[in-house]
Design a protein around this nucleic acid. Structure first.
Lengths: 111, 111
DNA sequence: ACTATATTTCCATAAATATAGAAATATATC
DNA sequence: GATATATTTCTATATTTATGGAAATATAGT
């Protein structure tokens, strides 16, 4: 991971519609969601959604998989993880007193 | 943390100059660096740097502390951590098979 | 090949963002 | 109060990004 790559990934999710889309997909798990379902869930017009999905997948933040007429989009967890690692690498000048223990949290019932 | 707040933080670092600045500060630790040192280190003109520092601090990604003629900027680790947590919350539909163990890594000698 | 559904591309417009020189402001020292 | 240093604000310009309707493309079933 280098600065440019990280900026590409960050830019992809640094936008309200796309962050919503991304988080939807993160929570949906590896199976992903079709474009239509995302459009309905988040109330985003098709053409706008398509633009954002293209941005996300071009950046490598989500993956697309065609299945008959549907295209299933899913979060690219590898990219997400690489990005998080990049941001926290070597932090705090060795003081190790400032970083969280970020780990995958299984979804809770009430969320 | 909500979508808008997260987008604000992400937008702050989703830009090459600002990501460089931010990582510089992350690695510098809580003491931070003065604007002048950052300017020289990264070779960014004063006015441009000032613009980016304002973006970063306005977003809450860095903190500023005046000390005599100097202004010391430091990474806001709390914001960083909240952001990372927000991105990984409830991920993978409970499969818990996709997330990293992101933790503060003390700086290694050769870096 | 006709029809329905899913998604994307095209397009024009609107809005936000990045850049850096020059001038202004703030603080410190003599 | 004059001078030097640190940083910001002002300004204009250039560039990138977001939006959504309409048309186009792709896939599937009849």
């Amino acid at each position: 991971m280098n600065t440019k790559q990280a900026v590409t990934l960050l830019s992809a999710i640094a936008q309200e519609a796309r962050l919503d889309i991304f988080r939807c997909l993160v929570q949906a798990g590896p199976a992903g969601l079709s474009a239509g379902v995302i459009s309905q869930t988040l109330n985003i017009p098709n053409s706008t959604l398509s633009f954002h999905l293209k941005e996300l997948s071009h950046a490598g933040m989500v993956s697309a998989k065609q299945e008959s007429r549907f295209i299933y989009y899913s979060a690219n967890y590898q990219s997400m993880n690489a990005l998080l690692t990049y941001l926290t690498d070597n932090c705090c000048a060795g003081q190790a007193a400032c970083c969280p223990d970020v780990q995958c949290q299984p979804m809770k019932e009430n969320e």
